[in-house]
């Protein structure tokens, strides 16, 4: 039997509106945002293996529980990066890059941290960016208490 002629789409929805997942990250990052008011960046450190998480995190890969807030520097190193903006693909529009303006973003490991934060890198030509490049966080003029406060870096 040939089914193709009578195969139709059936409307359906996955109703996620009533899910309320729990995360400690809100409380932890809140502490970091609070410290940013004093121009400090706080990550946290695992008591068992010494790994420093920035952004802070409540559990460690060694099964330890990071419980000590430690300061990391606002300078860091690009560990990886990508450049976009000259093109796009279906379904994705780059706010800043849509007009062909280059957008550079990178995995930045701030000094003193063992993990990376994804940041936009500004004030530099795309061809000059590279792994190993030293950068510094661009502190916002006005802190929003949101992850966007930690989103922009400039070459050191």
């Amino acid at each position: 039997m040939e089914y193709k002629e009578v195969t139709t789409s059936i409307d359906g929805a996955w109703n996620f509106s009533k899910w309320e997942w729990k995360f400690e990250s809100i409380a932890l990052i809140g502490r970091t945002f609070e410290a940013m008011k004093e121009h400090k960046l706080l990550g946290n450190k695992c008591p068992d293996c010494g790994t420093v998480y920035f952004l802070p995190k409540p559990f460690c890969r060694c099964l330890g529980m990071p419980d000590e807030f430690v300061e990391v520097k606002d300078t860091g190193t690009i560990t990886t990066y990508t450049v976009t903006g000259a093109w796009g693909y279906e379904g994705i529009t780059e706010e800043e890059g849509a007009q062909g303006e280059p957008l550079i973003f990178a995995g930045v490991q701030f000094d003193g941290a063992d993990t990376k934060v994804v940041c936009v890198v500004e004030d530099v030509e795309p061809e000059k960016v590279g792994v190993g490049m030293r950068v510094k966080l661009k502190w916002p003029d006005k802190l929003e208490g949101a992850i966007t406060d930690l989103s922009r870096c400039t070459p050191l």
């Binding site: 997942w21 729990k22 995360f23 400690e24 409540p58 559990f59 099964l63 529980m65």
Partner: peptide, 11 residues
């Protein structure tokens, strides 16, 4: 209500 994330519960 465990009142912690599933990650911490699993830990």
């Amino acid at each position: 209500d465990f009142n912690e994330s599933r990650e911490m519960m699993v830990l």
